[in-house]
Write a protein that binds this DNA or RNA. Structure first.
Lengths: 110, 110
DNA sequence: AATCTATATCGTAATATTGCAATAATAAAA
DNA sequence: TTTTATTATTGCAATATTACGATATAGATT
């Protein structure tokens, strides 16, 4: 087990932030998130039409966003309605606000 | 070139957010960031003593944080003083505040 | 029931990341 | 100048990610 991340050595919060950040660590997923914010909710096919990626690739990206808790999906007929999970966005906003508030703003060095 | 990210298809901002998020997409790098915020500035060795990872591994994580613009490092004698790049933290705070503000907060579905 | 529509999953190739031992590089200290 | 201290780089093994064609799944439509 060499190239595997040692999650057990870090706090739950650090792992949580990392998981969400990782999910946003790909421009396609950022684009999906922004599109979802713009249209409020949509189905997978809409995103396939919007982005230059194949349907299985979009599906995979949606899965990762969902696993990270950034989006939700509900079955609606034979399609699935996706939308933003506000709570997680709020969590990230709070996190950055929190650490930004802790910054010294005049470092010793650098 | 199959498993390579198609950055050229996304906006500059989407790529920038993804790059920063990706750098925070590992708990060790979140831990390094939080430690740096706590102590204001430190050298690589301090982080090696703090986290359960070998020196080359820490060095690599620092490099990635630096490449993403999240930290700065300045040579100081034979060691390097690392500290937070406030601007980038602010950028992320602004980004999440911006998208949080755009949320509908009562979705059609989900 | 057969077909269409929408999405997920499988399989696989290409690429990237993670982690560390060994070693190099550089500057201070002795 | 030899040694020590600090950090970066190299090389490599293990694992993870990215992308997509082919195929499966499931609900709607005819």
């Amino acid at each position: 087990m060499m190239g595997a991340t040692k999650t057990e050595h870090f706090t739950e919060n650090q792992n949580m932030i990392a998981t969400i950040a990782k999910a946003l660590g790909h421009p396609a997923r950022v684009a999906i998130l922004e599109y979802l914010i713009k249209v409020n909710s949509c189905i997978c096919g809409d995103i396939v039409n919007e982005l230059p990626l194949a349907q299985p690739t979009i599906s995979q990206h949606l899965k990762e966003l969902k696993n990270a808790g950034l989006i939700k999906g509900t079955v609606e007929g034979n399609s699935i309605c996706y939308c933003i999970a506000e709570k997680t966005i709020d969590k990230m906003q709070d996190y950055f606000a929190h650490i930004a508030g802790k910054l010294n703003r005049k470092n010793d060095c650098c």
